[in-house]
Design a binder for these strands. Structure first.
Ligand SMILES: [Zn+2]
Ligand SMILES: [Zn+2]
Ligand SMILES: [Zn+2]
Ligand SMILES: [Zn+2]
Lengths: 136, 136
DNA sequence: CTTGACCTTAGTGTGTACTCTAAGCTTTAT
DNA sequence: ATAAAGCTTAGAGTACACACTAAGGTCAAG
């Protein structure tokens, strides 16, 4: 299968596939005599693995690690896979906490502002950012 | 005040201050005869505004908009400021939702894996990413 | 036999917020 | 007088995940 059809079956761009190849996430094993990439069924499966891993939040660098483990399952333990998963989850939890703090501060700011059409001379949002430390 | 002292009073790096100047967030009004930046009290206040805005989650581009409004309060309404704040908050809410989905998926994955020391041949995390669509 | 769709590579651009480097001037302290 | 510390600039590098471009080769249909 050439790159165009392969890409459209997966709903990704050909650029993405070439990018993944350059970064060693998915290397088609064969080329045609003209030098065209020739993808096969197992590469389809691998690309689905990559997309599912992305869908649950793994970065490409992390997916590369997961693929290494998948290729050499004997050399790696369940524990290792679980650790990767949990570390990623905890990192995401931290980011959620940070964003939640932002969300709360912004809500407080927005709630105190009248939102009217008059000039912003006395806007409570601006004055809070200027002077006070009424946030958290 | 020269850049080094100014920076340490605010807890930022001199690089950061030069970066903000290049991007028109904070332009010291004077230079010494030797060409050194000379910061004054009002620039200290402005930098504090910037840092507070960052602290509640605004990006530098958004802070630049807020500063424009702050400098020309007559030309802008309370409504405008409130809109910026609410739009930012809603964008953050979207991002939180996405991360929360990641978090849930990763928790499901982690919970099904035994996490033991045996080889990862039958690791449920890997097999879920390979075959099944047991996530969301 | 030519048109158009598809493929190739290498390289550049995007957005965010800095951080670091090199090469050279100024100020301060000894 | 000199050495250390601090200042200047322009420009490159970092992370992430691609998107886009140019210049050219290949393949199937009419
Ligand atoms: Zn108002
Ligand atoms: Zn207001
Ligand atoms: Zn296990
Ligand atoms: Zn497992």
């Amino acid at each position: 299968m050439k790159i165009g059809e392969f890409a459209s079956q997966l709903g990704v761009s050909t650029d993405t596939l070439r990018y993944y190849e350059k970064h060693k996430l998915l290397m088609p094993s064969r080329r045609t005599s003209a030098g065209y990439r020739d993808y096969c069924h197992s590469e389809l499966k691998q690309m689905r693995f990559i997309l599912r891993a992305k869908h649950v939040g793994f970065s490409l660098a992390e997916i590369k690690e997961l693929l290494q483990i998948k290729f050499h399952k004997q050399q790696h333990s369940c524990n290792e896979v679980k650790e990767l998963t949990i570390q990623k989850r905890d990192l995401i939890a931290q980011r959620i906490d940070e964003l939640t703090r932002f969300h709360q501060s912004l809500t407080i700011l927005a709630d105190t502002c009248c939102g009217g059409k008059e000039p912003a001379n006395n806007c409570s949002i601006l004055s809070t950012l200027e002077d006070l430390d009424g946030l958290n």
